[in-house]
Design a protein around this nucleic acid. Structure first.
Ligand SMILES: NC(=O)c1ccc[n+]([C@@H]2O[C@H](COP(=O)([O-])OP(=O)(O)OC[C@H]3O[C@@H](n4cnc5c(N)ncnc54)[C@H](O)[C@@H]3O)[C@@H](O)[C@H]2O)c1
Ligand SMILES: NC(=O)c1ccc[n+]([C@@H]2O[C@H](COP(=O)([O-])OP(=O)(O)OC[C@H]3O[C@@H](n4cnc5c(N)ncnc54)[C@H](O)[C@@H]3O)[C@@H](O)[C@H]2O)c1
Lengths: 216, 216
DNA sequence: GTAACGCTGTGAATAATTTCACAATATAAT
DNA sequence: ATTATATTGTGAAATTATTCACAGCGTTAC
């Protein structure tokens, strides 16, 4: 069991858990590494290597117990206490995110939203109270929030990140197309849709031209 | 100049270009690899290594020409002809995406939307016409669409992907939390927000506990 | 002219990640 | 009980990605 687990492995464990949860709902009780691998779009060796991190063993003949493996990943990934999340920026994307995460994982839910727009402040959206920026330090402190989601315009992203970090947040999910400068003890994950779409466009074009060459 | 360029390099090139574009608007004319690196959050060696892919050389004393480098990346990344994109699923997320990409990059813009909801079909949203699913093959064909964005509910994602692929799409940007099964000549990029948020929560927790150990 | 400077481009070294390949083994069949 | 079987867990190898480190060079200063 390695001391530190790579970012990529953590991401895949999250995916495995979701797949296992679906399998459990479908009534499945056992599965083999190659089955989970096929569902996750990775190799069986990759699945087994990832599972080494969490200290759960399968059986050579039955494979893994769907329920036990899912719970084992949960014990590894999740906080023993609930983790509250703050959302900053209740615009088009922010509202979609609130709708998406509403009632999804009780362990990791949005407990406060922040916006500068006075029209949104003090309203309750998707069951979440929207606060003004000034209230951020107190709310983050009192709710014990460690995780922030940034869905503000690009120009506001750095300052919103600074405020969150000063208030004690240690992880940021950033949707603004701006690389954030944060202290080394803060983890940042960027979701850069422009970059993702440009990647898809590039490789789509490449695949399309490969096709042409094949028909030669 | 390598024959094939890695996915990661393509992603970073897209990021570099955006930063260069902003620099140009700010009136900057030249910059060094370490400056671009600092802005992108990578090392200078990484920047120089990435730039080897595109066949543009800087000067040892002036560094890179901001405008020329940006254009050079553009020639490498972009299609010589415009690439149209299809959006499937005009819900909360789909509408946010339409608003976000509207008028952003003329080279790579959403030219058609698709939804099953009869209330949305035949409406124009953010300047984009919404079609029914039945019209997808014809529209994809006639618009020459190679790239699709999936923002439909999880249960509908695979079948929407199948329809797009059958119609000729070669790249998919998938927001549904479901791994897609596609032929090998189709490129898929997944944006899995649940996974991303769980990663952030995991590492935020880890950083927070490191902090505690430090104050020991 | 030429010397000094600090950067680029890149081969080589290192680090990270994935895959291979196989001994160990839990179960079912007989 | 024994055997046959197919899978697990994991060292070792292979592959991929990043960083190091420095020769070579364009520019400036004198
Ligand atoms: N909409 C998308 O699909 C999409 C996709 C990719 C990236 N993004 C990025 O996500 C961010 C938000 O996008 P959006 O489409 O929701 O924009 P939006 O303009 O609809 O919403 C932005 C919200 O942030 C609020 N805001 C502005 N300044 C603020 C501040 N300093 N502190 C707190 N709140 C503030 C505004 O009042 C507004 O409610 C942008 O950075 C955008 O580039 C959006
Ligand atoms: N909202 C978010 O921020 C968010 C975040 C992460 C992932 N997602 C994922 O993105 C997808 C869309 O999310 P959403 O919040 O916009 O959902 P939504 O329910 O608001 O919108 C879904 C849209 O898809 C349409 N649709 C349903 N079946 C369809 C089909 N077969 N073909 C075409 N259109 C169809 C519906 O009419 C609706 O307009 C979901 O898979 C969701 O899990 C959303």
């Amino acid at each position: 069991m390695p001391a530190t687990v790579s970012e990529k492995t953590i991401g895949r464990l999250s995916l495995y858990r979701r797949l296992l949860y679906e399998l459990r709902n479908a009534g499945e009780e056992n599965l083999y590494s190659h089955q989970l691998a096929q569902m996750a779009g990775v190799t069986a060796a990759q699945v087994r290597r990832d599972l080494m991190s969490i200290g759960y063993s399968g059986s050579p003949t039955r494979g893994y117990d769907v329920r036990e493996l899912g719970e084992s990943i949960g014990r590894f990934l999740d906080s023993p206490t609930d983790q509250g999340v703050a959302l900053v920026g209740v615009g088009n994307l922010g509202r979609a995110i609130m709708a998406f995460f509403a009632g999804r994982r009780p362990h990791l839910r949005i407990v406060a939203a922040f916006d500068t727009d006075p029209y949104k402040v003090n309203r309750v959206i998707q069951g979440v109270r929207c606060y003004s920026l000034e209230q951020m330090p107190q709310v983050v402190e009192s709710e014990g929030i460690q995780v922030g989601i940034l869905a503000v315009p690009a120009v506001a992203a750095q300052s919103a990140a600074d405020t969150l970090v000063r208030a004690g947040v240690r992880g940021l999910l950033n949707f603004a197309p701006v690389p954030l400068r944060v202290p080394p003890d803060v983890y940042v994950e960027d979701i850069d849709m422009t970059m993702s779409l440009e990647k898809v466009a590039y490789f789509a074009r490449q695949r399309a031209s490969q096709k042409e060459l094949q028909t030669w």
